[in-house]
Nucleic acid binder design. Sequence first.
DNA 1: ACTTGAAAGTGACGCAACGTCATTTTGTAT
DNA 2: ATACAAAATGACGTTGCGTCACTTTCAAGT
Lengths: 257, 257
Amino acid sequence: MIHIKEVAKQTKITVRTLRYYDQIGLLTVSSKTEGGHRLYTEEDLKRLQQIQFLKGIGCSLKDIKVMLSDPKWNWSNSLKSQLVYIMEEQDKLKGIESSLRELINGIAVEGGDDQLAIQKLIQLSTNNKSGLLSYRESIFNDTELNLLTRVPKMRGEDPDSLEWIALLGQIKRLIKNDPASSRVQSIVRRMLEKQMEDFNDEEEFINKLWDIRKSPMQSEKLGLYPIEQEVLDFMERAYEIHISSLRSSTTQQGGES
Amino acid sequence: MIHIKEVAKQTKITVRTLRYYDQIGLLTVSSKTEGGHRLYTEEDLKRLQQIQFLKGIGCSLKDIKVMLSDPKWNWSNSLKSQLVYIMEEQDKLKGIESSLRELINGIAVEGGDDQLAIQKLIQLSTNNKSGLLSYRESIFNDTELNLLTRVPKMRGEDPDSLEWIALLGQIKRLIKNDPASSRVQSIVRRMLEKQMEDFNDEEEFINKLWDIRKSPMQSEKLGLYPIEQEVLDFMERAYEIHISSLRSSTTQQGGES
DNA sequence: ACTTGAAAGTGACGCAACGTCATTTTGTAT
DNA sequence: ATACAAAATGACGTTGCGTCACTTTCAAGT
């Protein structure tokens, strides 16, 4: 049970803000003195921390209120859309930044004739506007469509998708190396392991998918994350090396794992 | 001399906004009909374009008013300070972005237990503000501090961090299984492989880090993502099983990788 | 018990840049 | 002259508080 000023001191939130949160029902203070002075409990402080955190990642007070009041809130989704929003804002700012640099440089180039530089830039920016189009189609049977849902997605949040993305990222970084190197080979092995875990005996489907992958155009139509031809070729070479090394060790020892 | 609706059509500025600009004196319309309807000239349209452009690079209407009213305005200086402001905004957004990624990845690792992930992150972020750096420096020497930057981060978006997150998430999902099972063991092996790749021969550092990890309190002080004792114990058991199986196969064949 | 000064309370206005009614006038075609 | 579109004006809502202005309550000293 602490007074509002203490809370303000501890949380670095102003008294006005605390009263405002109370007013809009974001943090309804749990008890008051008979005179009406607000008294905050430890619970209230925890909620305040959550509010501060969520505000810090750019959530509006209204959203925070909804989030905290619903115990079954889908955090993952809202955080992702929040991330998308933040990324868009960054893109906007990047655009503004380049406009500004252009303008500043322009003024320098024009030797101080600010008006001229500005006129030029305004002309440029007003002409720049043009549009983009997109479209797609699909071709698969029902069984395969079902299997397709288990294919890792670039937008996935599950550990499996994440690991695929991570492995792919590493492959791309190692593309200048020898596909037979131990680092590359260990990644390929891990990929095959995961493939076995996720798709077990669906070899036919796997092969079909790989064929599609190898055609960038088809991959794009299917909404698969585009992988450069170079990377695909590299992966296939590494894969073949892995297979042949497996075969040679198998013929020598007849082992299995 | 065109009517307000025509102007709105041509400039894509709403009628309301045009009237508002007139009201605040940003664009005082040059002539009106006797009935009071606004009539815009070519001059007015040019000024409108300038206003739109300056608004586009993030200037406030108040600032624009000042800029356009002063024919000797120092554009270069104000644009530079505007650029500084824009860069600061971008930094803010980058900070928010990494917090969001941390939270999203955290939720993925916790396997959907949103509350737990959020609690952990809030704890981290509120503790972070204090003497994190000094604590780090008190524990590690310069070489180790350098190595520390290569430790995967929960907020990372690089493939390495993502794979660690993915592996950790999988471990958590498999915690009810036998630590000797092939799925668990293959993850442990992959973790060790990555450890070798990222830290090569820094065994001492690795051991030090693992000791810290095993102490939740120390981990928290260092800003490491909190992992439950249960999970840590499970990983250690799996790790020991892996080591002993390695030893037994080594003594039989005398191999190395 | 009484006084007093600090702290807490409750409105209410202001900010930026308009959107969105609601109501009244003006312009123009028939 | 009438009707209807378009324009004008006014006022409130939005976000997250800061900043008065004025009143009431708390806790301590006498």
